[in-house]
Structure formats: structure tokens, C-alpha cells
């Protein structure tokens, strides 16, 4: 399963470990599994209409997520997925 690494800033605001695993073949599926494990966390990552929040970024390995609205970017079993606050947020 993909390993998910979460920014310290988020871990300070919401009870989620800095490193966890979540299953899924796309970014959307991984976030859905995170929500199953840590109810409420998706509201920290997604807008009401399920797009990635404007000032949140997700990297799949070293590559930033391309589909910020549908989160359809594929995620492989052995990849690290990074969730962090975007610098655009100030």
C-alpha cells in the first residue's frame, strides 16, 4: 500500500500520524481511505466539492498532483505520497 507522509502542520491541527499507509489506486482513493481511518481528515484536504484545497498540495513521489479537481492521478503500491500545505497559503 502507498505510504502517506503528512506535514507536521496538519498533524498539529488534526490527530493523524505523520506517517501512515492507505490503500488506493488514485489520489482520490487514498484520501478516501485516509478518511475511513481518520474520520474528518478529508475536510482538511478537500473543498466542499471534493477538489483539493487551494492551499494544500499533494506529491506522488516527487511529482505534484496534476488533477487537483478529480484527484485521478494514479498511485502505485510502493510510492510515497506527501500531503503538505502549499506555500501559496502564506
Amino acid at each position: 500500500m502507498p505510504t502517506v507522509r503528512v506535514a507536521q502542520h496538519l498533524a498539529h491541527q488534526f490527530p493523524i500520524p505523520r506517517k501512515c499507509v492507505a490503500k488506493g489506486r488514485t489520489v482520490a482513493e487514498v484520501i478516501a481511505d485516509l478518511e475511513r481511518q481518520y474520520p474528518g481528515v478529508s475536510r482538511y484536504l478537500l473543498e466542499d466539492h471534493a477538489a483539493l484545497r487551494q492551499h494544500v498540495n499533494v506529491f506522488i513521489g516527487e511529482k505534484p498532483v496534476a488533477d487537483r479537481n478529480g484527484l485521478s492521478d494514479p498511485v502505485s503500491e510502493d510510492v510515497d505520497l506527501f500531503i503538505m500545505q502549499a506555500l501559496s497559503g502564506g
Partner: peptide, 20 residues
Amino acid sequence: HGHWGIKLHRSDDRGATWEE
């Protein structure tokens, strides 16, 4: 929160503990 969006918290003990 800026990055993480809007949140709502309540406290029944005048801020000793909060519930999101």
C-alpha cells in the same frame, strides 16, 4: 486555517477542552 480550511469547535467547559 488558511491551508486547511474552515473549522468549527465547541467547548462545554469554558475552553478547558474543545470538540471539533
